[in-house]
């Protein structure tokens, strides 16, 4: 059996002074251990709230979230969380920050990894003097040096130039390859994560709308192109008509009539955009992403 890295049941979060609106509502999903998961959704969808809840930085208003089989607070030694603003101590130097990382995580600290990620950062430079991209690099060095079982990264690549982005994504993937680290990365830019992630959570309007293996989510959908016609019995996610041509993204219910439609598998971007443009489309979780289910290891 594979354990769950994160399991949320009816999870909800409300911020004070936000006219009573829910930042996150009724979220139930499961992230199996060992996956690299893209947490995607538009700005303000609830991605950061979800990560902060999993990290134990926020207390849920309703529902529960379990991390590595326990409460987020109990799992703190086994996970690393890099928040969006990359919090570091501004008065420390780079070297002192890495030293603090080693001192605070004596059981698991991996100096070589931390040094490799920190790369060419001048070790005697003050954190205050670092650029946004350099701070990101240092924050990731701390997070990876801790050698966590679960790595939560909120918009990790936002401040990085393309070269650093590629290099750090490569380092994250190497970590996942070698230690089966579970990684969750949020972004509103899908292309940043496509290719690196094998699992997907689409959060939109405070709810989880898609969850599961990227390949399975894609395979469950079909892009139908053909005459303007009812696509029953398939579940319509989005349908658009241009002249006599109708393009419909459906969730298949049984076989597709290919005498009427040209059927193709959507790209990940097509799948996500279609869902974001159609807030009323029903949510879909693949079996491994459903909370409260133990799924046998494949």
């Amino acid at each position: 059996m594979t354990g769950a890295a994160i399991e949320a049941t009816g999870l909800g979060m409300k911020y004070r002074g936000r006219d009573g609106g829910w930042a996150l509502r009724d979220c139930s999903f499961r992230l199996p251990a060992g996956r690299v998961c893209a947490l995607v959704g538009p700005n303000g969808a609830g991605k950061s709230t979800l990560l902060a809840l999993a990290a134990g930085f926020l207390r849920p208003a309703e529902g529960t979230v379990q991390v590595l089989g326990g409460a987020p607070g109990e799992a703190r030694a086994k996970m690393a969380f890099v928040a969006q603003d990359k919090p570091l101590y501004p008065q420390l130097t780079v070297a002192a920050t890495l030293w603090a990382g080693a001192e605070l995580n004596p059981a698991t600290w991996d100096q070589d990894t931390a040094e490799r990620i920190a790369g060419e950062l001048p070790r005697d430079a003050g954190v205050r003097s670092l650029s946004g991209g350099q701070r990101t690099r240092l924050a990731l060095a701390l997070a990876l040096g801790k050698r966590p079982e679960l790595l939560l990264l909120d918009e990790p690549m936002a401040d990085l130039d393309p070269l650093a982005r590629h290099q750090l994504m490569g380092a994250l993937m190497a970590e996942a390859a070698e230690h089966s680290t579970t990684i969750v990365m949020s972004s509103h830019i899908l292309t940043e994560l496509e290719g690196a992630c094998d699992y997907l959570l689409l959060v939109d309007g405070g709810r989880v709308r898609l969850g599961g293996e990227t390949d399975d989510l894609l395979a469950a959908h079909t892009l139908l192109t053909g005459p303007v016609r009812d696509t029953d019995p398939h579940t319509v996610v989005e349908s658009r008509t241009a002249g006599r041509l109708q393009t419909t993204l459906v969730r298949r219910q049984g076989p597709v009539d290919t005498t009427v439609w040209e059927a193709t598998e959507p790209s990940l971007e097509e799948l996500l955009l279609a869902h974001l443009r159609s807030p009323e489309a029903p949510a879909l979780l693949t079996p491994s992403a459903e909370a409260g289910k133990e799924v046998a290891a494949v």
Binding site: V36, G170, A171, M173, A176, A177, E178, G195, A196, D198
Partner: peptide
Amino acid sequence: PTAREVVEATAINPNTV
């Protein structure tokens, strides 16, 4: 190349390799 070597150079998911 090992999966680790490939993903470190290409930044793709290890399972793909």
